[in-house]
Amino acid sequence: MSSPSTAIEPAALDREQLLTMYERMVEIRTFEDLAGKNFAAGLVPGFVHLYAGEEAVAVGVCAHLTDRDYITSTHRGHGHCIAKGVDIPGMVAELMGKSTGVCKGKGGSMHIADVEKGMLGANGIVGGGIPLACGAALTAKTLGTGGVAVCFFGDGASNQGTFHEGLNLAAIWKLPVVFVCENNGYAESTPVGYHCAASDIANRASAYEIPGVVVDGFDLFAVHETAAEAIGRARRGDGPTLIEAKTYRYYGHFQGDMITYRTEEELNRYRQRDPIVAVKGYLLAHGLADEAGIDAIDARVTEKLDAAWVAAKAAAFPAVEETLTDVYVTY
């Protein structure tokens, strides 16, 4: 991590906003821990890629967005969904492939989406969402909706052609889009120091003469403030920004990954600075919540997630006829 954390005072945030962001982060962590556990128990088909550790990025960015704004996401998309307000019970059911899933069980973890919430999908293609975000921003600009698009992608995606094509297009058209690179240190198992020629991915912004900013992705307030500036700039019509959030994933690339490419010591170093613990510490230190208040939030989230899993387990799988629907609007 080239940008040491300096705790930024969240001057612009009131107590309610801080508590909401804390709760969102806990929702993501709890969602992911349970997804991992239930995947291991055989309840989740396919692949899951967990976002635990990276919560401050999705929450700090999406705090500035409403339903008129769009996001695109990655393999590791659960956190972005929750931060953007996608229904959690519907997400759990989607992971299980149930008919009550947000995508009726047809997308699963890697394609989880809710366009009505402005969530244009997790994406099974690395870098696949970058042009889509430019398109969503083009819609906002053309129709004058005032909306912006935020494009989440990983360090691995920054080597795809779509990254460079998307940044150039957004720059020449001054699109209201913010590119958020979640650099968690590894593209699958390959370390960023190997796969990327740039010491900071944010440096790549200079090739397109747009702002490129590195932020500590474990620091919610730093992410929040950086995103505020970039999103504000996009909304004003001043064009795109590339934010590189240096972050870390606690789990492997996917569940089942033996994680032989990094050390326990490295993981523990990050866990010492856990972003949720840091926010909790801030809330307690500033008298914005007491232990009982925090415990109540944590318990509420656990109860919500437990109930979501109970409901998803009880829900029906889609009828086999559903295989043939939703390919076209008309055919």
Binding site: L120, L132, C134, G135, T139, A140, T142, A149, T162, L169
Partner: peptide, 28 residues
């Protein structure tokens, strides 16, 4: 020029942008 957009030679970029725009309210 807001409705007849010259693009760079960047097929993945602009075809993808057309798809993203279509999913969000335009008919590119």
């Amino acid at each position: 020029r807001d409705r007849v957009l010259d693009t760079p030679i960047t097929e993945a970029g602009f075809i993808g942008a057309a798809v993203g725009a279509a999913a969000t309210g335009l008919r590119p």
